[in-house]
Design a protein around this nucleic acid. Structure first.
Length: 119
DNA sequence: GTCGTGACATGCG
DNA sequence: ACGCATGCCACGA
């Protein structure tokens, strides 16, 4: 087949990065949500991997990604945890007992934004 | 090829 | 609310 379009791991990671870049300040998104939006249901861990692989030069707002419970997925107290927490609070995201109220701060992508995506 | 690990999610008790 | 099991699957040892 000359027209086969195989989606490699890199393509998927690329999609996650593209989506994260769309999240506005003051809002958060969950790993699972990113995977879903990328057309990869059930692949939340891949979203996490994508962020780990991302380089600082990409300037991704990775701190806006939390788990489905609205909590930061780093060990409480570690350096990364603190950095993420600080950035979120700087943006106005309210964190109570290490938790964020998703009903209030979870990002709801715009239809047009999704249609404009390359996938 | 098998196994353990992981920036996850969900269901059950 | 919390821990534990299971599902998921890429990666490295």
């Amino acid at each position: 087949m000359t027209t086969s379009s195989q989606t490699t791991i890199d393509d998927k990671v690329q999609r996650i990065w593209t989506l994260v870049a769309l999240v506005p300040a003051g809002k958060v998104v969950s790993y699972g949500q990113l995977a879903d939006l990328a057309g990869l249901p059930g692949r939340a861990r891949l979203a996490g991997r994508a962020l780990k692989l991302a380089s600082a030069s990409q300037n991704l707002p990775w701190h806006r990604v939390v788990n489905s419970q609205g909590k930061i997925s780093f060990a409480k107290g570690c350096q990364q945890y603190q950095t993420q927490l600080n950035k979120l609070q700087d943006e106005g995201v309210v964190v109570v007992s290490g938790r964020i109220k998703l009903t209030e701060f979870q990002w709801q992508p715009d239809i047009g934004e999704l249609l404009a995506l390359p996938f």
